[in-house]
Design a protein around this nucleic acid. Structure first.
Lengths: 341, 341
DNA sequence: TTTAGTTAGGTAAACGATAACCTAAACACA
DNA sequence: TGTGTTTAGGTTATCGTTTACCTAACTAAA
């Protein structure tokens, strides 16, 4: 005999001697059901270990109490923290968070999101790349509520929650300039990341304003340690290497530290290094990484709150919440060895 | 006018001038449909941007090509890596991975898993605590395929894929003993973790066999850096502190390093420190952490493979796959200062 | 020509939960 | 006593997809 199928409403109804609809009403607290019947039904449901079928509930248009979240990846501490914070916030409101990572293929990616859309989640938190604007107009028409996280791309009516990048970068660079640095190298972030673009924009403008702009001090990056290492090797191999390097993420900054070590450079005596994100490692790796703290918890919490509001039917159209970032100075930055010219 | 509802099979059918069933057949490559009709249907589906409704498909008993995965948390690099590897493996097989984190409340946890069960996933990868054995017998009866990851609890017929812990710990301790250490402190892992139990078991047996067992050298832990710090403070504050500390996870080992730093101890000159997991940080934090590498990629890949086999109908009952761990010696371990007595 | 098999596609039913509607009884009030 | 209102719970239909089954036409073999 094959394993019995999962308990359904009908099973509970049979055991309790009522109709399936009555069971549904009791379990959802709707309609008028006498206390005795409620009791009976509750008992039967507990006995059978009844749990509502998410697919059926969703199909009928009901809530699944699941929020979907799509992130590019999970290995970088940034997204791991973001996901954790969002899961916490959702949990506090009685929701579960289902996490999906972006697929490399954009076409496939869209199908996945569309599939998630009506699939099972009551709402979606999306960390999307900037290049998706025409896709976003499709999403805007969706009945499933959506909140974009850290979106810096083209105009959209979808609600956006993000952390600030520009001002944080400016503060960091002013810190380096105030220390006396004049040749400040930059290693960029991932190509399609709006945040990376913001950081680069700030770098360029600050350096231009200071009359220090030098395109050869800029290296491409992708937020990984490896790229930080490679970029730093290139920068440090120049005839007149920079006295400070600002990496677009902490992970890349750690790669820069490795490159410094390779060349026998002391941090911060021989070279100052700064990152972005304030990942948990930043305080751990000696001498402590100067970086910009991104308000991950605020972002996640606000995004969940906004999404729940949307699910409850409130209009969140065109809402934009931006949280400030904060300069965190640690041991990896100091005045350059050579005094100012 | 409110936003039009999502495109359904019926919409595509209307546009293509066929029945909904025919559309379904074309899109799933079943039944006998003429090339011309197929062409027509494909075109209509593409035009409308049709994507099947996951809930409906699942309800009907069809596949969603989604695997569910439940992990205790995401912030520790171990689970982040495990999830990434599983998502990769699933992706290569045309499946998506939906990730859920364990809720703190065990009762709620079970409901969640049950809910996921028939809810939407074609199969489930579960990282469960040891104390769940009676719950597992419920899961065994489920029609939805399940694979347990890193399970070391009571007997079950569910397939299990795990990394080896005992031998790896033995190898690590033999390494420390061979260096000349005699007082080796231990900081344990999370209470309900089967892996933590295995590591502790190995520690106890090796130390007993060497005639070095001393219960006061054991500190409780929970895999977090904070607990590593606290445990190490306690151990280093003893009249005769250990010359080496083995922490049940890399994260805790970093906490131990902090504690050493607090007391002005040099690693490895004054104290040897070892961890477990070989997290990405292990090679990064100077002087490099001696640790045991867990075969995360192998585990994830095998678990996904096994789950897909189960989904295809093969029997995986009672299967157990265990992958070996590997000692990784780095700079944090060296002979103790005081020569052997 | 008859029979059997194949091809193309349609119809009906089912998955499980729930919203909308309905019935019947009980109750209140004039 | 008659009329409206509330209460308790059942009936029906529906969400979108897929499986099982059916029909009709065409083809091939006997």
């Amino acid at each position: 005999m094959r394993p019995r199928a999962r308990t359904t409403l009908a099973d509970v109804a049979r055991l309790a001697g009522v109709s399936a609809v009555t069971v549904s009403k009791v379990l959802n607290g709707k309609g008028h059901i006498s206390p005795e019947t409620q009791e009976k039904v509750q008992r039967a449901a507990a006995l059978l270990g009844y749990v509502a079928n998410t697919a059926a509930r969703r199909l009928r248009g009901g809530a699944t109490r699941i929020l979907g979240m799509v992130v590019p990846e999970l290995v970088s501490p940034y997204f791991a923290e973001l996901a954790r914070a969002a899961a916490d916030a959702a949990g506090r409101c009685g929701y579960d968070l289902g996490l999906f990572t972006t697929s490399r293929d954009p076409q496939r990616e869209r199908e996945r999101i569309q599939s998630l859309l009506g699939g099972m989640a009551d709402g979606l938190l999306l960390v999307v790349p900037v290049g998706a604007s025409e896709f976003l107009s499709t999403l805007e028409q969706s009945q499933v509520p959506i909140v974009l996280i850290n979106y810096f791309g083209g105009a959209t009516h979808l609600p956006v929650v993000r952390g600030e990048n520009y001002e944080g970068t400016v503060a960091l660079l002013h810190h380096l300039l105030a220390l006396g640095h004049r040749r400040i190298g930059f290693i960029g972030g991932a190509e399609h990341s709006g945040q990376a673009k913001e950081r680069y924009r700030a770098y360029r403008e600050v350096m231009r304003a200071a009359g220090l702009w030098d395109e050869t001090l800029v290296q491409p990056g992708d937020f990984t340690r490896r790229k930080g290492l490679e970029g730093a090797r290139a920068l440090l191999g120049r005839p007149s290497p920079p006295t400070a390097i600002f990496a677009g993420s902490d992970l890349m900054a750690f790669g820069v530290m490795e490159a410094a070590q390779e060349r026998g450079l002391q941090v911060p005596a021989d070279i100052s290094i700064a990152g972005f994100d304030d990942s948990p490692l930043a305080s751990l790796v000696p001498p402590g990484l100067t970086t910009v703290a991104h308000p991950i918890a605020d972002i996640a919490e606000a995004a969940v709150r906004l999404l729940l509001e949307a699910i409850e039917g409130k209009s969140v159209r065109d809402q934009l919440l931006e949280f400030p970032s904060r300069l965190v100075v640690r041991g990896s930055t100091a005045p350059p060895k050579t005094p100012l010219p």
